[in-house]
Write a protein that binds this DNA or RNA. Structure first.
Lengths: 110, 110
DNA sequence: CAGGTTACCTCGACAAGCGAGGTAACCTGT
DNA sequence: ACAGGTTACCTCGCTTGTCGAGGTAACCTG
């Protein structure tokens, strides 16, 4: 909700989606649902961010997609991690941890 | 250096600068130096980000500026926190912590 | 007096996230 | 039968922060 949350999501949304897919293939809509549920209140995954992100990552070959049927019998595009995606996730997770370490050093020094 | 670090800085740079100013007034250039030193290697504060950020925050009355002389005797614009800035810092720090808690819940569940 | 540092500023490019718009299939309640 | 809600996808233009490259000027050192 605060506009800064939107900004902070930048550079983080991709990694969240990748992480979601380590639990197995999921379609876009389900990814959004799962993320909001897991992250807890305060995080909303807008579809205007979600689908472009999925598209982007497929272009980069971090994920691959396949049409199928959702649990409710509807057409849905299922995404799964590629080897490159797994590697990317690992690298970005390390970067993320290094990043919050840096920020924490400034925010709560000593 | 990684492009994602640049993205992650979005929504974080302001709070870093505000935090810097809790140690007392500083001029822009010194803020950049201090931040890089405190955060440690991996974070660079580009002047093309720094000065616009200072400008922005002054517009929002989170900080106020005054021309003076640096330690080296040069002209420099010194910034200091306003009451609103202090409030903003507090709020955003709380948001930041809530945010990393959310992300962590996704990244390392259980 | 050349070169480096300190200290400031500006401008355009880039890109992610958002909001609002849309489509279509399906289910439920009346 | 049909209205309304949900599932599930997509697209487009806007906004906004960061970056890189450009510039100015004062000062110090060799």
């Amino acid at each position: 909700m605060p506009s800064t949350t939107r900004d902070r999501l930048r550079g983080t949304l991709d990694i969240l989606i990748l992480r979601t897919l380590t639990w197995g293939p999921r379609h876009g809509y389900a990814i959004g649902r799962w993320l909001e549920e897991t992250a807890g209140p305060g995080l909303t995954i807008e579809e205007g961010s979600l689908y472009p992100s999925l598209y982007r990552m497929e272009q980069r070959h971090w994920i691959s997609s396949e049409w199928g049927r959702s649990e409710l019998g509807r057409e849905a595009k299922f995404y799964k991690l590629t080897a490159a995606g797994r590697k990317q996730l690992k690298a970005e997770t390390a970067e993320w941890q290094a990043f919050i370490a840096m920020i924490s050093r400034v925010l709560v020094p000593e």
